[in-house]
């Protein structure tokens, strides 16, 4: 947990890594069906909203980036497929 948090902080504090992560997240969201919505807390967003939030790197955009990072880490560690 602490290692993950540290890694996330390292990536966000490095402008090059942060931009790379942002590009990955934007690509992921770009291929999302237009009809899907995402609920973040009490707010709801469509695909275009989400892209703007990610570009702005506001709270919602950062959360999307953190989630993508968590997903990539789980993918590389094998945690995602561990139950299969």
């Amino acid at each position: 947990m602490n290692n993950q948090k540290g890694l996330t902080e390292d990536i966000f504090s490095n402008p090059v890594f942060r931009e790379q992560l942002k590009a990955i997240v934007l690509e992921r969201v770009n291929v999302m069906p237009k009809t899907l919505r995402i609920a973040v807390g009490s707010e709801e967003f469509n695909k275009n909203d989400l892209i703007e939030h990610i570009k702005d790197e506001d709270e919602v955009g950062k959360q999307m980036m953190v989630m993508e990072l968590g997903f990539l880490q789980a993918l590389t560690s094998g945690a995602i497929y561990a139950h299969e």
């Binding site: 009809t35 919505r37 995402i38 609920a39 973040v40 807390g41 919602v60 959360q63």
Partner: peptide, 21 residues
């Protein structure tokens, strides 16, 4: 520690149990 987040398909808002995502 953060916002609880999930995707959904508005086509299923009247029947969320059938929403595959």
């Amino acid at each position: 520690m953060r916002k609880f987040t999930f995707f959904y398909d508005p086509a299923f808002i009247l029947k969320p149990v059938n929403d595959p995502i």
